[in-house]
């Protein structure tokens, strides 16, 4: 199986360590990873602002770059959702549907494709899990609290398999953190308040680390934590799993 790794633009530019962790983690799990060169973006910042039409160029570039991969993995649920659901209709062809059906967010790739539910690693910290909305309610990599039935979370499953980790219970386990892409700027005041509240929920349960599947949400929270000099750290789940497995 040829697995192509998609590292979204903001991870590439701002959090290369998350890209590196993802690559190393996948390799530890025995995956043959290829990183197609000249990657850019999934197009989401434009599409979510109403300019889906203007993402044809970006999406075409993405499709050409990844159409040779059997499977595509990305450490961002949000970008995966963009590719699966909001690529302009003009590009809906066989190449695209292959990509649409074979692109996975990192943790769902581990649990659903590699069929690994437990990882051999240790992480002795109190961790709060940030259920990013696009992973949770978009990709359904967990059951949101609004729905009836047994709760599950693919990322939570992997984290809880680590030795000595303590996953803290939050008052509002899956309320949005307030990032929301361009929402964080268009609706700055509400976005900031949502982030502040999310951090407060973690602090009140003595979390030491906020873990997430989307670095964009974590970037928003990290920005607030650093500005307010709070004792909390954000980590992408790839970083945690990769560190734990050494």
């Amino acid at each position: 199986m040829k697995v192509g790794l998609f590292i979204p633009c903001y991870i590439d530019q701002l959090y290369p360590c998350v890209g590196i962790s993802t690559l190393q983690l996948l390799e530890k799990l025995g995956v043959d990873v290829e990183v197609p060169q000249n990657q850019t973006c999934c197009g989401q910042p434009l599409a979510n602002s109403g300019l889906q039409k203007e993402t044809i160029g970006i999406s075409r570039h993405f499709i050409n770059l990844f159409s040779n991969c059997d499977t595509i993995v990305s450490p961002s649920g949000s970008c995966v959702l963009q590719i699966k659901e909001h690529v302009p209709k003009e590009l809906h062809d066989e190449k695209y549907s292959h990509i649409k059906n074979n692109i996975y967010e990192l943790t769902e790739f581990i649990t659903d494709i590699l069929k690994i539910d437990e990882l051999d690693g240790q992480f002795p910290y109190r961790v709060g899990l940030l259920q990013s909305c696009h992973s949770l309610r978009g990709l359904r990599n967990g059951k949101s609290s609004e729905l009836a039935g047994k709760r599950f979370s693919k990322s939570g499953q992997l984290l809880s398999s680590l030795k000595d980790i303590k996953l803290v219970d939050l008052d509002r386990p899956d309320e949005c953190c307030g990032f929301g892409g361009t929402f964080s700027v268009f609706e700055e005041a509400v976005s900031v308040q949502m982030g502040v509240d999310k951090i407060k929920d973690h602090l009140s349960h003595d979390a030491e680390i906020i873990a997430g599947t989307d670095m964009s949400c974590l970037m928003h929270l990290e920005g607030l934590i650093n500005r307010n000099r709070q004792l909390l750290k954000v980590m992408h789940i790839a970083e945690i799993l990769n560190t734990a497995m050494t």
Binding site: G19, G223, L224, R227
Partner: peptide
């Protein structure tokens, strides 16, 4: 607008793609 209430991330020296080219 981003920076009104939030810090921007500490910036890395190189991008993932630059790292990949250099190391892999």
């Amino acid at each position: 607008t981003w920076g009104k209430s939030r810090d921007i991330p500490t910036l890395p020296r190189q991008s993932f793609q630059e790292w990949y080219k250099e190391n892999r």
